[in-house]
């Protein structure tokens, strides 16, 4: 797999990412994906071609020239949706299914927790909550939440 830096990225008129690799081949509709979106978002980003095969492996996003990184990050930001819960305001019940009113880094919303199993502990204090519609909510640091949120959350852990 190529990991040389001799490639160019640009955005075409259709809003797709286009990659021109070292020997001049043009790949349209390039999709960037993070390999470790939760544990190490900056390590390892893969650029996949339209056919789903890997075109290029970027070891570290920060190692890329600024404009390319901006392009990739913009593309990633459009695809990635993992709101980070900053506060749990209210829960409808302590038995599942339960509706939670939460504040996230993307605004306030409501999530439906179908079962306690859907709260998964990733590392010591990082939790991933998958709601009834498949959206993943992240709690990056359990201990950083305020007391009210933690008390509510504690009833489900």
């Amino acid at each position: 797999m190529k990991s040389n830096k001799d490639f160019r990225l640009e955005r075409n008129a259709a809003g797709q990412l286009v990659m021109v690799d070292a020997d001049g081949t043009v790949h349209e509709g390039v999709v960037p994906l993070r390999a470790f979106p939760i544990s190490a978002p900056d390590d390892g980003v893969s650029l996949l071609g339209e056919d789903g095969h890997e075109l290029l492996w970027v070891e570290r996003l920060s190692g890329l020239p600024d404009e390319m990184r901006a392009l990739i990050e913009a593309e990633l930001a459009q695809r990635e949706f993992m709101p980070e819960i900053t506060r749990i305001k209210q829960v409808s019940s302590f038995a599942t299914p339960s509706k939670w009113q939460v504040a996230t880094d993307r605004g306030d919303t409501e999530l439906l927790l179908k079962a306690e199993d859907h709260i998964r502990r990733l590392t010591g204090s990082t939790l991933l909550i998958t709601d009834g519609y498949g959206v993943s909510f992240l709690i990056r640091d359990l201990d950083a939440l305020d007391g009210h949120s933690r008390r509510l959350l504690d009833r489900f852990l």
């Binding site: 994906l33 470790f36 939760i38 996949l48 890997e54």
Partner: peptide
């Protein structure tokens, strides 16, 4: 590698 990348959270 490739099928892992296509999963919602990659290697995570």
């Amino acid at each position: 590698h490739e099928f892992i990348l296509r999963l919602p959270h990659g290697y995570d």
